[in-house]
Measured scan of single mutants.
Amino acid sequence: MQAFVKTLTGKTITLEVEPSDTIENVKAKIQDKEGIPPDQQRLIFAGKQLEDGRTLSDYNIQKESTLHLVLR
Rank of each mutant, 00 (worst) to 15 (best):
M1I: 11
M1D: 03
M1Q: 04
Q2F: 13
Q2H: 12
Q2L: 15
A3N: 03
F4Y: 14
F4C: 07
V5H: 01
V5I: 13
V5M: 02
V5F: 05
T7N: 05
T7Q: 06
T7G: 06
L8R: 12
T9R: 09
T9S: 13
T9C: 14
G10P: 02
G10A: 03
K11E: 08
T12L: 13
I13N: 01
T14F: 09
L15C: 02
L15P: 00
L15M: 05
L15T: 01
L15H: 00
L15D: 00
E16V: 12
E16D: 11
V17I: 07
E18S: 15
S20T: 13
D21G: 03
D21P: 00
I23V: 10
E24I: 11
E24N: 08
V26C: 03
V26D: 00
V26F: 04
K27Q: 02
A28N: 11
A28G: 10
K29E: 02
I30L: 07
I30F: 02
I30D: 00
Q31I: 02
Q31F: 15
Q31L: 10
D32E: 14
D32Q: 14
K33W: 07
K33N: 05
K33Q: 11
K33F: 08
I36Q: 02
P37K: 07
P37R: 08
P37E: 07
P38T: 14
P38N: 06
D39K: 10
D39H: 13
D39I: 10
Q40W: 12
Q40V: 11
Q40N: 10
Q41E: 01
Q41A: 04
R42T: 15
R42Y: 14
R42C: 14
L43H: 00
L43W: 01
I44G: 03
I44N: 05
I44D: 05
F45C: 04
A46T: 05
G47H: 05
K48N: 10
K48M: 14
K48S: 08
K48W: 07
Q49M: 14
Q49H: 12
L50I: 04
E51S: 08
D52K: 04
D52F: 04
D52V: 05
R54H: 13
R54L: 12
L56Q: 00
L56H: 00
L56P: 00
L56I: 09
L56K: 00
S57E: 12
Y59C: 02
N60V: 05
N60Y: 07
N60K: 09
I61L: 06
I61G: 02
Q62D: 10
S65Y: 08
S65G: 07
L67Q: 02
L67P: 03
H68T: 11
L69S: 01
V70I: 13
V70L: 13
V70C: 09
V70D: 08
L71P: 09
R72Y: 11
